Amino acid sequence: MEVRTIKVFTTVDNINLHTQVVDMSMTYGQQFGPTYLDGADVTKIKPHNSHEGKTFYVLPNDDTLRVEAFEYYHTTDPSFLGRYMSALNHTKKWKYPQVNGLTSIKWADNNCYLATALLTLQQIELKFNPPALQDAYYRARAGEAANFCALILAYCNKTVGELGDVRETMSYLFQHANLDSCKRVLNVVCKTCGQQQTTLKGVEAVMYMGTLSYEQFKKGVQIPCTCGKQATKYLVQQESPFVMMSAPPAQYELKHGTFTCASEYTGNYQCGHYKHITSKETLYCIDGALLTKSSEYKGPITDVFYKENSYTTTIK
């Protein structure tokens, strides 16, 4: 009895394709271990004539594949690729409408935090270190965002349907971005203890939790000093293409032309909904596939993004 075979390709990165001759009487799992086709788990399936010449994702289970996976995804987590594939199996079914010149995501599976993050990423200057993220990001900007969303979920250790947080998501993504040249110098002034300067680099240099107003941050924000008295913390120097200011959701007025974009969060910790506000020729609110415009805006804002380049204080 002759062994019926077909020729397929296996890959971990969709760049390096490895030619395989597979036995049609055995499952993919018996031949390769966990195997995925377009995100779908085909591990328990036997090869079919229609699979001839198709590319299958496999887990990096030998040295060659491990090197290829690390170079593309910059992670050695053995569960990463499987999590990416199972997320992709959902995100490829989502709709990605162009809204006001940006790629958004039609609401499904509690994905409003991903839509808000995706919209924000198209408006701030950011370059990702893992080629996987950078490639998928370019495709997302062009309207094909399924891979990018699935990668975000995998890097953030999230599953489809789980509630997510924009600030946490951005923080994970910033860790995989090139923020080497970003720098922030802060000064804390206390009447009792004097003053202390701190220099922050990388992710810490672009994120701040405690106030939404970048102007206020430049002037000074009140913080408790270690001595128990009130101290003032203010920005001395900022070198970065953008800054992200966050605070627990509270009524906040966004003035046209003073910011790049913002995240609105309605609801409580267990259950809520994100919308995205962007400042173009007027203010726009993007909620999944829905767009509304207004000249002014007041609502429960939790993150505001500002364009920056270089700032030095005039406070002496």
Results as ranks from 00 to 15, higher is better:
residue 2 E to T: 11
residue 3 V to W: 11
residue 3 V to I: 14
residue 5 T to K: 14
residue 12 V to L: 07
residue 13 D to E: 03
residue 14 N to I: 06
residue 15 I to K: 13
residue 16 N to K: 09
residue 21 V to C: 14
residue 25 S to L: 11
residue 26 M to T: 06
residue 27 T to D: 14
residue 28 Y to H: 05
residue 29 G to K: 09
residue 30 Q to L: 12
residue 30 Q to N: 14
residue 31 Q to D: 05
residue 32 F to R: 07
residue 32 F to E: 05
residue 34 P to Q: 10
residue 34 P to C: 10
residue 35 T to D: 03
residue 35 T to L: 09
residue 35 T to I: 08
residue 37 L to W: 14
residue 38 D to I: 10
residue 40 A to L: 14
residue 41 D to E: 07
residue 42 V to R: 06
residue 43 T to Q: 13
residue 43 T to N: 09
residue 46 K to R: 13
residue 48 H to K: 14
residue 50 S to A: 14
residue 50 S to N: 14
residue 51 H to Y: 06
residue 51 H to I: 05
residue 52 E to A: 13
residue 54 K to W: 14
residue 55 T to M: 09
residue 56 F to P: 04
residue 60 P to H: 06
residue 60 P to R: 07
residue 61 N to L: 13
residue 61 N to S: 14
residue 65 L to C: 07
residue 65 L to P: 05
residue 71 E to Y: 07
residue 71 E to I: 07
residue 76 T to L: 14
residue 78 P to I: 08
residue 78 P to F: 10
residue 81 L to M: 10
residue 83 R to Y: 06
residue 87 A to S: 08
residue 87 A to Y: 05
residue 89 N to K: 15
residue 90 H to L: 12
residue 93 K to E: 09
residue 95 K to H: 14
residue 96 Y to C: 04
residue 97 P to M: 15
residue 98 Q to E: 10
residue 100 N to L: 06
residue 103 T to K: 01
residue 104 S to M: 06
residue 107 W to K: 01
residue 109 D to L: 03
residue 110 N to H: 03
residue 112 C to V: 00
residue 112 C to N: 04
residue 112 C to D: 04
residue 113 Y to H: 06
residue 116 T to L: 05
residue 116 T to M: 06
residue 117 A to W: 01
residue 119 L to R: 01
residue 120 T to D: 05
residue 124 I to A: 02
residue 125 E to F: 04
residue 125 E to S: 09
residue 126 L to N: 03
residue 126 L to F: 09
residue 131 P to Q: 06
residue 134 Q to H: 12
residue 135 D to T: 09
residue 136 A to S: 10
residue 138 Y to V: 15
residue 140 A to N: 02
residue 143 G to F: 00
residue 145 A to D: 02
residue 145 A to R: 02
residue 147 N to W: 08
residue 148 F to S: 02
residue 151 L to C: 01
residue 153 L to R: 02
residue 153 L to F: 10
residue 155 Y to K: 05
residue 157 N to I: 04
residue 158 K to M: 05
residue 161 G to W: 05
residue 162 E to F: 02
residue 170 M to T: 03
residue 171 S to V: 12
residue 173 L to P: 01
residue 176 H to Q: 12
residue 177 A to T: 11
residue 178 N to Y: 04
residue 178 N to M: 08
residue 180 D to G: 09
residue 185 V to G: 00
residue 188 V to F: 08
residue 188 V to W: 06
residue 189 V to I: 10
residue 190 C to L: 01
residue 190 C to W: 02
residue 192 T to R: 12
residue 193 C to G: 01
residue 193 C to E: 04
residue 195 Q to E: 13
residue 196 Q to M: 12
residue 199 T to G: 04
residue 200 L to M: 09
residue 200 L to V: 12
residue 200 L to I: 10
residue 201 K to P: 02
residue 202 G to R: 05
residue 204 E to K: 12
residue 204 E to P: 13
residue 212 L to P: 04
residue 213 S to G: 04
residue 217 F to L: 15
residue 218 K to A: 06
residue 219 K to C: 10
residue 220 G to D: 05
residue 220 G to P: 11
residue 220 G to E: 06
residue 221 V to F: 10
residue 221 V to K: 05
residue 222 Q to K: 11
residue 223 I to L: 09
residue 225 C to P: 02
residue 225 C to A: 00
residue 226 T to F: 09
residue 228 G to S: 03
residue 230 Q to T: 13
residue 230 Q to Y: 15
residue 231 A to M: 04
residue 233 K to G: 11
residue 234 Y to E: 02
residue 234 Y to M: 11
residue 234 Y to S: 08
residue 238 Q to C: 01
residue 240 S to K: 02
residue 241 P to Y: 04
residue 241 P to I: 01
residue 241 P to G: 08
residue 243 V to S: 01
residue 244 M to S: 00
residue 245 M to Y: 01
residue 247 A to L: 06
residue 247 A to Q: 07
residue 251 Q to I: 12
residue 252 Y to E: 06
residue 256 H to S: 12
residue 257 G to H: 06
residue 258 T to W: 04
residue 259 F to R: 00
residue 259 F to Q: 02
residue 261 C to R: 00
residue 263 S to N: 14
residue 263 S to G: 01
residue 264 E to S: 08
residue 265 Y to S: 00
residue 267 G to P: 06
residue 267 G to Q: 08
residue 270 Q to D: 13
residue 271 C to L: 14
residue 271 C to H: 13
residue 272 G to F: 01
residue 276 H to V: 02
residue 276 H to Q: 03
residue 278 T to V: 13
residue 279 S to N: 09
residue 280 K to C: 11
residue 281 E to F: 02
residue 282 T to R: 10
residue 282 T to Q: 14
residue 284 Y to A: 14
residue 286 I to N: 00
residue 289 A to R: 05
residue 292 T to C: 12
residue 293 K to D: 09
residue 293 K to G: 09
residue 295 S to P: 11
residue 296 E to T: 11
residue 297 Y to N: 03
residue 299 G to H: 00
residue 301 I to D: 01
residue 303 D to C: 03
residue 305 F to Y: 06
residue 305 F to H: 02
residue 308 E to R: 06
residue 309 N to A: 11
residue 309 N to V: 11
residue 311 Y to E: 11
residue 312 T to D: 07
residue 312 T to P: 09
residue 313 T to Y: 15
residue 315 I to Y: 15
residue 316 K to T: 06
